[in-house]
Design a protein around this nucleic acid. Structure first.
Lengths: 279, 279
DNA sequence: CGCCGGCGATACCTCCCGGGTATCGTTGCG
DNA sequence: CGCAACGATACCCGGGAGGTATCGCCGGCG
């Protein structure tokens, strides 16, 4: 299978529409139909059901969609990492969620910069759940993740810290007078829904809460009195006066991990991980 | 980048010789030269140093070799898994090293087979360090690994058992009279070298010991008095009278893991993993 | 009921590029 | 100096990727 075929199939499988997929790919629709047909014939597997009014995936097609995305990420990563390997001794790219683990991150960056022959570190801030993708497709070398929220599937990791969670509420809300709360307290507040986070495919589950992509958005919404949330207690360090935090006694502990793609062998990365585990 | 280009580059990078690489690929040498040249030009990166008498990899070329192998494995896995998804409800393929964890494996297979709606399980026995490859390229769904010997990089794992190691020696050897041994005792026996295991690229390190690929070969060599080895103590269950085992007091503990590729979501796999962790 | 519009499949053409053969330039060696 | 090994270049050919035009099917609507 050629990557061109995989790209074509992914486009059709995501659009579920040959015309739009062809447009997105910058080709005409007939060659795309033909290419998908050839792919199905060579595999001996029907990938799509054509219902004369659109297209749906077969079970095998769903498998190929998942696998093809991973394979295309790997190819993309090969290209990016090769370019970067050639472009002189470039530094590391670290990715973390916007608004999370900021003081851990600044301590880490400071400690690493003090190491002998430390490489320059670029920091990317991304939305929830995007770190793995950036590591897999070669745009980043190392990430900070938060278990159990982020998936570390397919990554090498080291644990850094573990902390409890706090309820973050609009300042002045009645619940902020409590000394401690339970998750059930937080879930049953009629005027303060919990936010809804995107799933791994980028879409949002159905539900009442406002849709958020990162902690910065979330804190702004809380300050506006539009929702409440459970966050790791380290977020208290950079809360402003518009919001208040109350300890949650029964929320799961949050573990901060440093993660990198398997088979990375750069000494700069190894030094950064070593620095992180020593903090 | 197309997979064809990656395959071509991997062939040249492994052979370090355009002629042989072309032969292996089943094409003539000139198109191969041209394809590699195009790849280098498109990437803007020199991948090979041509020394008029052979070829060597540049640093970027070494990076691309590693990444290209991973990417090609992912593409191959996409194809295999799609075919298997279409070929009816095929069973699971479990891979483990020949001669390792046999009684754990048989208990696991028996327990899983007793589950309601258990899928049929095919077992593949492979050489040392090949399990990860089989998982990555889609030939297997799940593996038994042994830490610290096998790499679990890029795989999801659960720990199953932990055990000490024993020295395995030819029956009647003087050391077998000891009640316990240290690793240093084993390393300093002139007539019994330790075996040499293949590295991840399949080549063997320089050294005196006989080259082995799996535990079956190893035990036969020990029985012949050609070497000694440290093995997990569970191997005692299937040692024959030609060899003897002595506890090792300072050898690292061996953990048996069950491992699977990330993002596998089959319920059959989940059930097998659940069964394994309950043993 | 018939027309239309949307969608994927088919037919057919063009041209690029992947692959082949022949040959050259360089270099190390006898 | 001639030869052999190796990669690069020159040139040609055919398949296939991509384009346009069109068809077949079906659902909706007046």
């Amino acid at each position: 299978m050629e990557t061109r075929e995989l790209r074509y199939f992914v486009a059709v499988a995501e659009e579920l529409h040959f015309g739009r997929a062809a447009q997105r790919l910058g080709i005409a629709q007939p060659p795309l139909s033909r290419a998908i047909g050839q792919l199905e014939r060579r595999l001996g597997v029907p990938l799509l059901e054509r219902n004369s009014r659109g297209v749906t995936l077969t079970e095998a097609g769903a498998v190929l969609l998942r696998e093809a995305r991973a394979a295309l990420d790997a190819v993309e990563a090969a290209e990016r990492r090769t370019r970067r390997a050639a472009a002189g001794q470039a530094g590391l790219v670290l990715v973390t969620k916007a608004g999370a683990s900021t003081e851990l991150l600044s301590k880490l960056l400071a400690a690493y910069a003090a190491e002998p022959d430390a490489a320059p570190v670029d920091v990317i801030l991304c939305g929830i759940g995007e770190q793995g993708r950036l590591l897999r497709d070669g745009r980043a070398d190392v990430a900070l993740l938060h278990r159990p929220f982020d998936s570390s599937a397919g990554l090498d990791t080291e644990e850094l810290t573990t902390e409890a969670q706090v309820a973050v509420l609009p300042a002045g809300h009645p619940l902020t007078t409590a000394a401690r709360l339970r998750l059930s307290d937080l879930q049953n507040v009629a005027d303060l829904p919990l936010p809804s986070w995107p799933k791994s495919d980028g879409t949002y589950p159905d539900g009442p809460g406002p849709r958020v992509r990162d902690n910065t958005q979330l804190l702004q919404l809380i300050a506006l009195g539009r929702c409440a949330a459970a966050l790791p207690e380290s977020c208290r360090a950079h809360l402003n006066a518009d919001v208040a935090a109350v300890p949650l006694v029964d929320a799961p502990l949050v573990t901060t991990l440093i993660a990198w793609p398997p088979h990375s062998r750069s000494r700069a990365l190894a030094a950064l991980v070593r620095t992180a585990t020593r903090l």
